[in-house]
Structure formats: C-alpha cells, structure tokens
Amino acid sequence: MHEWALAEAVASAAIRIAKEEKLKSISIVNVSLGELQQVDVEIFKFALSEIKSNIPMLKDADFNVKIVKAEFKCRVCGYRWTFRREVLNEEVQEAIHFIPELAHSFIRCPNCSSPDFEVVKGRGVWLESIVGVK
C-alpha cells in the first residue's frame, strides 16, 4: 500500500496549490505516474477516492491518471532503451517500485553494460495540473 502514501502526497500538493491559487474547490486533478514506479493504478485511484472524501475542497474532484512509459539513455555510449518489467524478478521489481533509483542497482545498459544511465522519462509521480472554482 505504498500507493496510499503517494496518493496522500498528490492530495496534499493539490490542496497546497489550490490555496495558492485561491480556489474554493478543486474539480479536476491531472496526475502523471512514471512507469518505473510500477504503481498499481487501481489501488492508487482507490486511495485517492478514499482520501478525497474526507477533504471538502477535494471531495468532488476527478483524478485523471496518465502512465508515462519509462525510457533510459546510457551516459557512456548514448544507447536508448525502454523499461521491461517482465525481465526482472519479483524482488527487483519490488525494490524499484519503492525506490525507482534502484534501477541503477539492477539494470544495465543493454549495449555497453554501464550502470551510468539517465532515466529520460517515466520516473516518479507528477501533479501536472489542477482545475478548480474560484
């Protein structure tokens, strides 16, 4: 239920931004989830629906969740490749789920075997935008 902690973070950030923007209520929250994080979207959405029901400013909000495919670029040879969860064992999937940076412990550049690569996209959780009523 690590998803719950991330959902709380999204709710907290949405409220903070709404207050900064002087919104009375929030109607739409657009969230991007990096594929590398391997968040269970159903659990994440369930957590959001539970959390929002206790927060007046957020209770009528719709959450749009978009998954961003993970892509890596090797800093040594420049090779680009995508994340393939299925080639990793369960323990490694779990480690990367909790701390996506541990991709550097378990994944190597398919071209030159370097662990020094960049996660070009598809890492983390991002609050893209919110829509609300002033």
């Binding site: 902690a5 701390i99 940076e101 541990l102 550097h104 662990p115 983390g124």
Partner: peptide, 23 residues
C-alpha cells in the same frame, strides 16, 4: 531494497531517492 548490490547514484538520483523515502 538494494541488498548487497552496488547503488551507483548521481546527484539527481540521490535527491529523488531521498524525497521518495521521506515521502
């Protein structure tokens, strides 16, 4: 999570891992 594996992290990765664990 890393076990005995090496964790070769650059600065931005360290920041991200720190934020993740604090969150």
């Amino acid at each position: 999570y890393s076990g005995k594996n090496v964790s070769p992290l650059r600065g931005s990765d360290i920041s991200n891992a720190l934020i993740e664990l604090l969150a």
